[in-house]
Design a protein around this nucleic acid. Structure first.
Lengths: 339, 339
DNA sequence: CGAGAGTCTGGGAACGCTCCCAGAGTAAGC
DNA sequence: GCTTACTCTGGGAGCGTTCCCAGACTCTCG
């Protein structure tokens, strides 16, 4: 079949000619300004419909210096993007707020350095009026580029090496401490952790909270570091933990997916939760309700995280002062059956 | 903290002044044209670095009538977007091809009618040079708007009511028939189906393939229709199926998530697969490997679907003729333990 | 009736870029 | 030497909008 090519579009001048008014009047109607007679308005609206006029975004953006779009940077390796349950909820939260304010959300997935340069150019090139960045890690070149650009921005989570950009997050450290303490309260003696994402704040803080809770009972040999917040990492992590110490009776996993993997690895060697080992996760994602037994975990308001981040960006665009640089939303522990 | 506002950006004229050349020469350097002296090129590059110049996208798009971006329409209700394992893979496939060709992918999530109008305006407003649409259903206003616009486009899947736009898909009908036949070959006598997505081609075709395979053994009472390709739908669907006929010994689910839900519903009433009931799914998603027992299912090349769709769009932009309107990629059956 | 305020319109200028033409300079070939 | 071809540069025109100013018209009120 022949290639599809966009048809020649009508311009504001075409509309003006058909409506029998001037370019200025058409523009006023299009932008809903006052001081337009009913007759002119009606004529313009009819002409717009007749010629199938759609405003040219580039021309408009050029003069208004706005694009009406907000970017969302998702900077994750493939597998994580597919597995992370929070990303979808955050995205929907952002979308809800922006939709309300008549902004368009454009998500930019970065999964290689090559993409990084392209995305940075996209951001500073005026395609977007602001940006939300999720899951930035240390030394993230895009995060740094955005921070420098002065572009209205907000982080979900708090990259430790970037200042001057507002963020929303959860208090990972307190939440991790609380969930570990409840694990201790159930009488567990040898509690291990399968820790992921140590290249970013969330991962580090969860480990720190775990360490806090155990105090002098903390044994670094019972912390297994895994690369991803993923099911496969959970399987590998649990196996490794059991080889280090087969008397482990409690495990805090950095995410529900990891916890689910840990549960599967346990089943393979004839162990079960909560009888042999108490297992807790983090996220309260869809995983948590589907494991056998269902996971005790930390609930985080992912949707709200997205909403708040979007609001922070809009506030900046509108020139409003943002109260504080960072804020943390409440988490809660969901106690199910796995511990 | 005070709002972040983009700093006043340098223009091509600033660069020209600093480099001591004309606007035209700067433009030539920026666009990598020939006929530029080494001296001029060096001076311009130095000036670009000095003033921190970034090309203004709007101005460029206005004159070139191109944006260098391709849109991806994801038109799904919330829950589906989060659960559908294929969307992520398709997205990554598209991104890989576009990244190679130096195009930027912008994903537009549509989850309400309000969004629909905004997205349609975005698409025809010149923000994107082409668009990939996944999961369009019947009477999808965005699909129709795109088809009309003449914008280079491609569908993943084949909306039945839209013509003239190329698409890539899989042969859902044949795959469904094949997987049902193998279910029959294992000796199952009363085979039911939990069918989702009957408002789109994929869902309809899977049901048709199921019907094909059973021939005159087809019993409409053993088909349960559920709203979503989701785990929760699987639970509800299986319960309903068992109330219709408790001697069912085989089930074809429209997706792995549904199959996983069905398995969970079976366990609740003391039934297991493959002993009591053979269960097969569709997608070969991450679900399939994590259920107990692992799912027999249809593997579909989601990543490749994305790549092909992206290639179709690029071909149109470059004015190349697209061989055929539609093409179908190969699927394969993965035989695991659930049937 | 005239002044002033309010309503409505047309069109010039500008946004920042690319395209393209005209022209200057240089090298090669007869 | 002159022609021809090639290399390189400057700057005018134009992309499709919005912004804004000047002016025409209408109404109200003293």
């Amino acid at each position: 079949m022949p290639p599809r090519r966009p048809v020649q579009r009508a311009t504001i001048n075409d509309v003006a000619r058909v409506a029998g008014v001037s370019r200025g009047t058409v523009s006023r109607v299009l932008n809903g300004e006052t001081y337009v007679s009913d007759a002119a308005r009606t004529a313009v609206e009819a002409a717009v419909a007749e010629v199938g006029y759609v405003r040219n975004a580039a021309a408009r953006n050029l003069v208004t210096r706005q694009s009406g779009a907000i970017g969302l940077i998702v900077h994750e390796p493939h597998s994580l993007f597919l597995e992370d349950p929070n990303i979808g909820s955050i995205l929907l939260g952002i979308n809800a707020v922006l939709s309300e304010a008549d902004y368009q959300l454009v998500s930019l997935v970065v999964d290689s350095d090559r993409d990084g340069a392209r995305v940075a150019a996209y951001l500073t090139g005026g395609y977007v009026d602001g940006v939300v960045i999720i899951s930035a890690r240390e030394n993230d070149p895009i995060g740094i580029a955005v921070a420098r650009s002065g572009l209205p921005a907000a982080f979900v989570g708090h990259p430790m090496d970037i200042e001057g950009v507002p963020y929303v997050g959860i208090d990972n450290r307190s939440a991790a401490r609380a969930v570990t303490e409840r694990l201790m309260a159930t009488g567990r003696q040898r509690i291990g952790m399968i820790a992921a994402g140590l290249d970013r704040d969330s991962g580090q803080d969860r480990l720190a909270g775990f360490t806090d809770a155990l105090g002098d009972r903390f044994d670094p040999r019972l912390v297994v570091e895994v690369p991803l917040f993923a099911h496969s990492s959970g399987i590998a992590g649990m196996r490794e933990l059991l080889t280090h110490d087969d008397r482990v009776d409690g495990v805090f996993a950095s995410s529900d997916a990891i916890a689910a993997g840990a549960l599967d690895a346990m089943r393979d060697v004839g162990l079960s939760a909560p009888g042999d080992i108490g297992v807790v996760g983090f996220d309260d994602s869809a995983w948590a309700r589907r494991t056998q037994p269902p996971l005790s975990t930390v609930h985080q308001p992912a949707d709200l995280l997205g909403r708040r981040a979007a609001e922070l960006v809009l506030a900046q665009i509108e020139g409003r002062t943002v109260e504080a640089e960072g804020s943390f939303l409440e988490t809660s522990i969901v106690w199910r059956d796995s511990a």
